[in-house]
Structure formats: structure tokens, C-alpha cells
Design a protein around this nucleic acid. Structure first.
Lengths: 206, 206
DNA sequence: TAGTTACTAATACGACTGTAAGATGAATCC
DNA sequence: GGATTCATCTTACAGTCGTATTAGTAACTA
């Protein structure tokens, strides 16, 4: 039953390698087939169209990240595990450097492909919910289970800001060698967390 | 003397339109020629190779932004004109929305094209210098002319953070309809400026 | 055992690709 | 005026592209 999925998984993995080396423009049915060590006919068997193949690979990449984040333990010191989650989203080692570069290629392609744009929005929303939980956790606020808790506009704004910083940090770090990114990335993140996220919730002054 | 440049300029403009509609994968010599209303041979006359054409178009796009920013008056209230410059870098209207989407496509392509990566780094460096001047201006610090002024690591970190926030904001706003981006963008930027950039420079508390 | 399904491969086709090579006309220069 | 340069176009060639078709093999099913 999952044979098909395994096959698609293998091809998605190969596709990301092609994107990493040649960019998304280098993704062709034949290139992916060759990278995966199969014939073009096999690729066609799993994906009837090139667009479907790319879409699936983007979905798969997103799921990979999600799965990795799910493995981070969420007990003990709040500052500790939230920090670890955030660091896990930045391109601080060679693997995640490659992963983020590939993701960025997908996001850029999403600007002209509605199907990819949808997926991008979904992923972005999931991440925003994660950031929301992190901001609330670090401020000792109750984590809402449903959407019933009255929204705090201050928290919502800071969640969007955190997402911006994370996106922008990743975008800057991906231009660096990962050794340097590993040095400066955590410093900048920690600075932002202490300056904004962990700031005591004061009432709005005007 | 500038005839050639005018020709190249016209083609670069056409190329960005192609990228906006079809993505960078849709950029071919013939597509750009057709978009510019000339023959493919004309394109070849100005750019001997496709890569050179893309490279020039990216350069041209960067120069367009630079030129637009140079037009912002830099006198009067510091908070006012620095804010205007920053807002001018975000995709808050239809034109700059398109412009940023195109730029993002170039940046993603830069991951596998060394020549574009160079240009991306140069642009990023120029922007960082701009952000540095803005942070110093808003804090009433002297703006260094040369590099002789002793570097303040706190300021440098905040410059990198500001660049991250600007990059990340743009990345998020480009997914929104520009009408909504125009609403939420300035709010988030103002919040960040008051929380971090305009924060009184206190010594590090370790 | 016969039949059906999942998988892999090979081949073919028309469209599009980047690029090279000439041809034409207009403008510029000596 | 003759020569030269420049902008533009057309044509041509050798690839690669996505995709449809067909065929073969292995495995499960009844």
C-alpha cells in the first residue's frame, strides 16, 4: 500500500538534490530519473506530470522539517527548548543549509505557481502557530488549545515579528558559509529573544 | 554611446516582466524578445548569452531600487525620513510587490549561479550600510564617514537584526495581497523600530 | 493456472531551447 | 561618395524538453 509512497519519496529526495545542484530550472523528468538511478518511465509512473512531481517534492520537504521539529523534547526549561526549536529552523549546519536553499527555490517558484503558493501558505501558517506557542510559552501566558482564547493583539504582532526575524535570519545566513552562520546565527537570535520576545508585557503606551 | 545601454535596459525591463508572469524558468531568449517586441536576433545582439542577460537584468533591478531610494529626502525629522526609506523597501504597493517577487526569483537562482550570488552579496552589503546609517541616525550616534570609527558591536548586531526583519517582512508581505500588506506592514515595522532600534543604548547586562 | 495489477523500461513525437551565421537597411565617419 | 559600424531580422542546427505509447517483468489473486 505504501509502496507507491516509498517510490515517490525516493524521487522527491532525488529532486531536492537536483534543485540543490542545478536550481529549480535544472529539474527535468530525465534529470530526476538519472539522479534517482531509474528510467524516465519510472518517474512518469509515479508522477504523471512534472508540475505534480515538483509539488510533491515541496510537500515532502515541508513534512521533513515538521517531522524533525516534532522530535525536539518540549519539557524542562522553557527558554531552553523553545530556543532549540528556533535554532533547528535556521540553516546552521551543512544539511539544513542545503535544505533551506532548496526550500527557498520552491518559495520563489510559488510566486508563479498557484499550487505551490497554496502549499507555501499552509506551511507558513503552521509555522506561525508554532511561533505563537513559543511566544506565549516564554511569556508564561496560557497556550490556547482552541481558538476560544481572546486574542491579544500585542502577542499576535510579536508572533508576526518573530516569524519575520526567523525568515530574514535564514535568508541572510544562507548566504554565509555555514560555519560562520553557526557562529553569528545563535547570537542574533538570542539578542532578539531577550530584546523582544522575553520583554515583560507592558500595556501599550499610547 | 548609450544606445547600447538603452537597448539593454529595454530588454532587462522586458525580462523582469517575463519573470513576474512565468517565473525565472520562463525566461528564454525568444520569450524576452517577444515581450520586448523585437526578434530573438536583437536580444542576441545585446547579450551574447542567456546567463549574461539574466545577470544584467538582476543588476538593473538592483540599480532601480537604489535609484528610487536616493530620491528620498534625508532632512527634517530623523524618525520620519528613515521610516520612509524603510517603507520604500517593502512590497506595500502593486509595483513594489511585483518588483520584490522578481528580486526573490533572482536571489533563489543565485544559490546555483555564482555570478548572481556575487551580485546578491554586493546588494546585501549596500543595504546593510544603509541600515547602519539608519540605526545610528535614529539613536543620535555619529555617522561614520570612513571605517575609522571604532565599531560598536551592539550597533552592528542591531543592524543585522534590522536587515533580518526587513528581509523577513518583505518575504511575508509578498504572500499577501498588497492592500493587506499596506495595512499590516507599516504597523509591524513601527513596532519593531520602537522596540529595538529606538531603544536607548544601555550597556550589556550580560 | 490464468488473470490482474504494480512497476520499470524503451521509444517516439512535436515543441521549444541556446546559439551561430548571414542578410538587410540605416546611420556615421573620413 | 565610399566604407564602416550598428541595430535588427531571418534562418538553421543540434539538443533537450514534457509527455504519450507500448512492452516487458514481477508479484499477487482468484
Amino acid at each position: 500500500m505504501t509502496d507507491a509512497r516509498d517510490g515517490r519519496h525516493r524521487l522527491a529526495e532525488a529532486l531536492t538534490r537536483v534543485v540543490a545542484h542545478e536550481g529549480i530550472a535544472g529539474v527535468s523528468v530525465r534529470a530526476v530519473a538519472s539522479e534517482a538511478g531509474v528510467s524516465a518511465g519510472t518517474v512518469q509512473h509515479y508522477f504523471s506530470t512534472r508540475a505534480e512531481m515538483i509539488r510533491y517534492a515541496m510537500e515532502w520537504t515541508s513534512a521533513q522539517v515538521e517531522q524533525r521539529l516534532a522530535g525536539v523534547p518540549r519539557w524542562g526549561d522553557v527558554r531552553e527548548w523553545t530556543r532549540e526549536i528556533l535554532l533547528g529552523l535556521l540553516p546552521l549546519d551543512a544539511d539544513r543549509h542545503r535544505e533551506y536553499a532548496v526550500w527557498l527555490a520552491f518559495v520563489a517558484q510559488a510566486a508563479t505557481d498557484p499550487s505551490l503558493a497554496d502549499l507555501n501558505r499552509q506551511t507558513s501558517t503552521k509555522l506561525r502557530e508554532l511561533y505563537s506557542r513559543i511566544v506565549r510559552a516564554r511569556r508564561g501566558l496560557p497556550i490556547q488549545a482552541g481558538g476560544a482564547v481572546p486574542a491579544d493583539p500585542t502577542v499576535d504582532a510579536d508572533v508576526l515579528l518573530l516569524q519575520s526575524v526567523m525568515d530574514g535570519l535564514a535568508l541572510q545566513l544562507v548566504d554565509l558559509e555555514w560555519e560562520e552562520a553557526a557562529k553569528v546565527g545563535p547570537e542574533l537570535l538570542d539578542r532578539y529573544l531577550t530584546l523582544v520576545v522575553d520583554r515583560p508585557t507592558e500595556p501599550e503606551s499610547t
